[in-house]
């Protein structure tokens, strides 16, 4: 793995979060193992998956870097992939997220998550939008979907990370959960997955619709886009915990 300070926070993430990220890298949305992944036959994976994911955070990071790098370039780099920042910028370019060239990784991730949330909010129904607006401290005066959605979007753009965090936590109890839902669906081939989808309900459907906007054709992006979103969510959560701990 390339020593990448932008991914070193992974070692402090929870087992579930790392497992979700790992599943995103190794399995597709039908639950089938990805032909190009190199993680599941790794000795460390065998030892750590699924209970001790912290023990393999470096392998997960390396796999993400490999997926993000060009295959031939990876060979010339001696089997290691691209840096996380270049993968993130690449994903943003693909997703048409505009970012200034001097932005930090955190700022780029916020921009990406904001775009993701915008897509999701656009497909939520009015009741959910009302709940969400109350959650982030906006009192909706209207019952018009467009107006409420616009109010949330304005708050999202102005508030940045401060508003984004509760929005992400609210929408389907954050993106990780919908990814885990997909993971559960993969692992159990049906019954549990359907139950999870039913539990997720309209929020889940809205999230999936938002997700689909990102689910693009290119095989490499099918891996890096959800993985980068997952990493961005994990960092957001990690940073908010870190800040809370510092304030206390």
């Amino acid at each position: 793995m390339i020593v990448d300070s932008n991914l070193s926070f992974l070692q402090y993430c929870s087992n579930d979060e790392l497992k979700t990220l790992c599943d995103t890298l190794t399995h597709d949305n039908k639950g089938e193992v990805r032909l190009s992944e190199q993680l599941t036959d790794n000795d460390v994976y065998l030892r750590c998956y699924p209970d001790n994911m912290k023990g393999m955070w470096q392998e997960i990071a390396a796999e993400l870097q490999r997926f993000g790098g060009n295959t031939f370039a990876n060979i010339f780099r001696g089997g290691v992939g691209a840096s996380y920042e270049s993968i993130l910028r690449d994903v943003c370019k693909k997703m048409k997220v505009r970012i200034p060239s001097c932005s930090t990784v955190e700022e780029i991730e916020i921009a990406l998550l904001t775009k993701y949330c915008e897509e999701t909010i656009g497909s939520m129904d009015i009741d959910l939008l009302h709940e969400l607006s109350v959650e982030i401290g906006i009192k909706p005066q209207s019952y018009n979907k467009q107006i409420v959605a616009a109010a949330i979007l304005v708050a999202l753009r102005r508030g940045g990370g401060k508003v984004l965090a509760p929005v992400i936590y609210y929408i389907g109890s954050n993106i990780s959960r919908i990814l885990i839902g997909r993971g559960v669906y993969l692992a159990t081939a049906g019954v549990l997955g359907r139950a999870a989808a039913a539990l997720a309900g309209p929020i889940g459907w809205a999230l999936t619709a938002g997700w689909l906007a990102f689910d693009i054709a290119s095989p490499a992006y099918r891996v890096t886009v959800p993985a980068v979103i997952q990493v961005a969510c994990m960092r957001l959560k990690h940073n908010s915990h870190f800040l809370t701990a510092q304030c206390v």
């Binding site: 000795d43 065998l46 030892r47 750590c48 998956y49 699924p50 209970d51 001790n52």
Partner: peptide
């Protein structure tokens, strides 16, 4: 042998 060292 590899499998026997795995979590699963």
């Amino acid at each position: 042998d590899r499998w026997s060292k795995s979590c699963r």
